[in-house]
Write a protein that binds this DNA or RNA. Structure first.
Lengths: 196, 196
DNA sequence: GTCTATACATAGATAGAC
DNA sequence: GTCTATCTATGTATAGAC
């Protein structure tokens, strides 16, 4: 009898795309944007260059996909936080956001940095921008409920402060994650409590 | 009689180097790192590719020079501030630092961002690192005199917060410089006044 | 769908005339 | 010192066999 496989084509396809993106991420993370060549990605992913072009129309598409994945990742974390009951208390909300953001950027610091900066050199990607906007809006909505004034701007500033401090820590090869978290807390809460 | 020129060779040389760097800065600023090719720089500077290689051994040397110039620039501004009598008062000191930093990064936002990216992808440049360290040390020394605890870390954090917020503003194409300065003041002073 | 082979373009770098 | 011409390497992308 005929073997009843589950979506063999889609699964193989997905796995391949995933492998290609993983290879691209590794290369970016390791030696930066210059290492991200279509040949290198294909080789590392163990697929031929021809196959790669079947899934991604070029190097830029690869980068765009990485950026979208990164944004989607952070968005998911933020969604979890604002949906939890931690969101009802300003201190807890912000603490969780800090924790998640630090964890996010420190998971693959070199990759995050490269993608962040690459974003500015690429043609703007509406989908990635949409993710960013949603992150801000989700946070802003909660801040608004908590009677924080100018919630949208405040949300953006919190994220900007976090990214700046984490980036600097990464660049300085700072190892102590706890210390970093403490200082980011001080900065963000200081900002929130300062007279507007 | 013989025309008594002042260092004709050096002057011409300096002018040429300057022209090359200006061209490189323009290209970086305009279309990012990918536009920074030796051929393009030479063409825009109006010199031949051979001449360019006489002054810079390659593309990386060009980038390194740009980065050093950028750092030296900020260092100079900070030196002026910490040497002035503004440095005797915390509020004035920090205000001037914020003003200078915002002006610095907003002078050529795209260039600053691109160089920032390049710095992480290039082999570390000791001279550029030295400039960065001196900026921090200068500020830290003043903070120490003003009885701020952990002056070195504090100086680094202030700079990190500023860069993060200015970067975000640039990315969001925020036009209102006054509003940005206000928010950075709030963030930095909030951080300084928050319990450590 | 996947691979191999290859065309095409461009970048980095150098040689050698002037 | 400066330029022109050019070599070499490499990256992007495609064509065509399987």
């Amino acid at each position: 009898m005929i073997e009843p496989r589950k979506h063999p084509r889609q699964d193989r396809s997905r796995a391949k795309v995933h492998g290609i993106l993983a290879a691209a991420a590794d290369l970016c993370s390791g030696r930066g944007l210059e290492a991200l060549t279509t040949n290198a990605v294909a080789a590392r992913a163990g697929v031929s260059i021809g196959s790669l072009y079947q899934y991604f129309p070029g190097k830029h598409a690869l980068l765009a996909a990485l950026i979208r994945a990164e944004r989607a990742n952070l968005l998911e974390a933020v969604e979890r936080i604002v949906s939890s009951d931690a969101a009802n208390d300003l201190t807890r909300l912000v603490d969780e956001l800090i924790e998640a953001t630090v964890a996010h950027y420190l998971a693959r610091p070199a990759l995050s940095r490269t993608l962040n900066l690459a974003r500015t050199q690429l043609p703007p990607d509406p989908e990635a921008a949409e993710f960013s906007a949603r992150i801000t809006v989700l946070i802003a909505a909660r801040l608004d409920e908590l009677k924080i004034s100018r919630p949208e701007t405040t949300a953006q500033d919190i994220l900007a402060i976090l990214r700046g401090m984490i980036d600097a820590a990464t660049e300085a090869q700072e190892a102590d994650r706890g210390a970093l978290t403490d200082r980011t807390r001080r900065a963000v809460f200081g900002y929130l409590h300062a007279a507007a």
